[in-house]
Design a protein around this nucleic acid. Structure first.
Lengths: 208, 208
DNA sequence: TAGATTGTTAATCGATTAACAATC
DNA sequence: TAGATTGTTAATCGATTAACAATC
């Protein structure tokens, strides 16, 4: 079922398809064609059909795709039918905001534990969670079977924290620190750096 | 100087080069080769040399690149030698966090005005800024010559807000709402959706 | 049946990399 | 000079798209 050799770039587009399909479900749309989906997402219908074809045949000629069915298939493929628990390391301003941000929970990801190395922060309560010291990480990861971690520490500490997360069994890292991380094979990293995105726009605006 | 036909994918990598070079400056590194830069960024030396060659010749054979010089050139190319002012629309939990997050200011982007359409929020103070009503947007954009905007409203409002921003003269939008935006040519959008990134990792972890 | 749209193949397009002359 | 590394070209690789038979 889980064919190998799926290009990573295709995997990264699947969540976008799922996101749009969720939207269509809310809008009570029953059926969608690759044409319409493409128009919404700003990509070609051919690309959408090709991407989906890596995983199976989900559509019907002449009609398109059943929105609910395709969404449920995509959620299965992505492994997001269950809830995923996430460890958050670094509870400064940014970490606080991430911990309190409701958007994760609504969409299947629950921040299940907070860690920081600042003794003044350890023991503090953020929402329903208490901030734990870094030494608690291995036990918590094991106890809650965590596979995902969010890094929200200063850039200077991010690689060190990452190494520790990986050592403890974390296999996917969402990194908010503005630095490139090095991880062993089998561990994935995704990056969020708003400034990098803004800079790729100022390039176009600088002489506008 | 500003050769056309630079692939967008190259433009998007320039800020990553700049970010790493800033780091090297702080580490007091004088000189770096495409080899070393590539190792740090997880890309091939050839790619880095090719990317840079779109903009000029910045290196020295046998030696590599002068870190400070290359950084200053990249900052010029990206247009980030000046400070950019940004409008933030939507001051809910997420917007609050963005407004208070110090990371923008340190790296050349200043959130200069806050907007919301909730009468209970208008007039409130967040840090040094007062939350303004949406009707103030055109005047503020003109007065401060804003070109960049951040969208942090619920998905259902994001397109509407975007249309309004564009109408008011905003030409680059950083969108935190989990939805694809449609903008006219000449306007750029960049997306931040942590859940989409997490989902592209759970794909790999689902049966691990 | 006529119209629409899928899934898939082959062609095209574009991005990455290997290789090397130039040169510090 | 010997060693290192650039900038650039040509070759390779991979992703996107056009086109169409299949079929609802």
């Amino acid at each position: 079922m889980n064919t190998p050799e799926i290009p990573e770039i295709v995997v990264r587009r699947l969540p976008l398809y799922a996101r749009t399909l969720s939207w269509l479900v809310e809008e009570n749309v029953q059926t969608v064609s690759s044409q319409e989906l493409g128009a919404n997402l700003g990509m070609s219908p051919a690309q959408i059909r090709k991407d989906l074809s890596y995983f199976g045949e989900f559509g019907k000629q002449g009609t398109g795709y059943d929105v609910k069915y395709l969404l449920s298939q995509l959620r299965q493929i992505l492994g997001v039918e269950r809830e995923w628990l996430v460890a958050l390391v670094g509870v400064g301003d940014l970490g606080h905001a991430i911990a309190r941000y409701g958007g994760f929970g609504k969409r299947g990801f629950k921040i299940a534990a907070l860690f920081d190395n600042d003794p003044r922060k350890i023991g503090q309560q953020v929402g329903e969670l208490e901030i734990l010291g870094m030494e608690a990480l291995p036990m918590v990861v094991k106890g809650l079977r965590l596979r995902l971690g969010i890094v929200a520490v200063p850039a200077a500490k991010a690689q060190e924290v990452t190494d520790y997360l990986v050592e403890c069994g974390i296999r996917g890292i969402l990194n908010y620190a503005p630095i490139n991380l090095h991880v062993p094979k089998g561990v994935r990293v995704r990056y969020i750096d708003p400034v990098v995105l803004l800079q790729s726009m100022t390039y176009h605006l600088k002489s506008g």
